[in-house]
């Protein structure tokens, strides 16, 4: 590597740009680029191949799975497979898709609203116990909630919610991670002067939150909503534990196809998998850039 002393020593903190020296950049590119690009391209191919193959098999008949050399281009069976999928008596796929939409949308809206409220309060309002509550939120983030599924199931039985859609909605209406994320964002993004101005104007705290704070928080709310939607959509162990095969979520439904005892119908399973993935990919196409940005800021937990 070459030594360069042609730019100021200190780099800007936060999100620094690439070094400014153009000569250096070109030389680095020439030195490093081919191997680096090859490695990255290979990784991208590996990342996308399973998705591509899912689409290929979803558009073909089941025997395509086993053919060698492998079939790598889509066929014309997608409509037929879709018909079989939605008509499959054991999978209840249509209901599963609908249930997952309702659950994911409800949970996302609730998480975004409640976490914004709490995050704003913890970041910007002064009240006794604030630090303690903030620490409590951080601790809840580390709690592996899955560990509590047995008592949660007992709780659902008491409530009579076993097998009902609300069983996969109500337990997830808030998230410690969400509060933490909104708190961090509000602490940086909401200027105290703005709150002070609203207060002098006689706004109540709720009014201030609604008209002043929420608009500022919107970028973080979008990402939190997207992540929550993904998480709820993907919820598996809890759905399988508490729901029944005739009222499933979409994940539960495709797992039914996967487990059905008779001859395994791969194109049917893969069509189901494709429909279970598609909504997430569409959301990603719309909001993906923002998601990447937030992950890069270290603001997103798994």
């Amino acid at each position: 590597m070459t030594v360069t002393a042609d730019r100021p020593a200190q780099a800007p903190a936060g999100r620094p740009r690439r070094p400014a020296g153009r000569g250096r950049r070109l030389r680095r590119l020439r030195e490093r680029a081919p191997l680096t690009y090859a490695g990255l391209l290979l990784t991208v191919l590996l990342s996308l191949f399973p998705l591509w193959w899912m689409l290929v098999i979803a558009t073909r008949t089941t025997d395509a799975v086993a053919r060698f050399p492998p079939v790598l281009l889509p066929g014309g069976e997608f409509a037929a497979n879709t018909g079989r999928l939605f008509g499959n008596a054991g999978a209840h796929f249509t209901l599963g898709l609908w249930n997952s939409f309702v659950a994911s949308a409800t949970v996302s809206l609730s998480v975004v609203l409640f976490c914004s409220l709490a995050g704003f309060a913890l970041a910007k309002l002064r009240f006794p116990g604030r630090n303690g509550f903030t620490v409590a939120v951080v601790v809840t983030m580390a709690v592996p909630v899955q560990v509590g599924i047995i008592p949660l199931l007992v709780l659902m039985q008491w409530l009579g919610w076993r097998g009902e859609l609300q069983a996969v909605i109500v337990p997830f209406l808030v998230s410690g991670f969400g509060v933490f994320m909104m708190r961090q964002y509000a602490a940086q993004g909401v200027p105290d002067e703005l709150l002070e101005a609203a207060r002098i104007d006689g706004c109540s705290t709720l009014r201030t939150f609604w008209s002043v704070v929420l608009p500022v928080l919107r970028p973080a709310m979008v990402v939190l909503g997207l992540l929550t939607f993904m998480q709820t959509w993907n919820e598996f162990i809890w759905a399988v534990a508490v729901l029944t095969p005739d009222n499933p979520t979409v994940q539960f439904s495709i797992n039914q196809l996967n487990e059905s005892a008779y001859a395994r119908d791969f194109s049917l399973m893969f069509t189901g998998a494709a429909y279970a993935t598609l909504p997430l990919l569409i959301l990603f196409a719309v909001f993906g850039r923002r998601l990447v940005g937030r992950i890069m800021e270290g603001a997103v937990k798994a």
């Binding site: 690009y37 990342s47 193959w53 899912m54 959509w233 598996f236 791969f266 399973m269 998601l291």
Partner: peptide, 30 residues
């Protein structure tokens, strides 16, 4: 290290993270 195409690579590399876990487990199992 790279400059050109970094944004595109970032998007491509994060796509597996936004897929359905059970669906992809079915694909990988096959």
């Amino acid at each position: 290290r790279i400059v050109r195409g970094r944004g595109l690579f970032q998007i491509a590399l994060i796509i597996p993270y936004v897929t359905s876990i059970a669906a992809m487990a079915i694909v990988f199992s096959t």
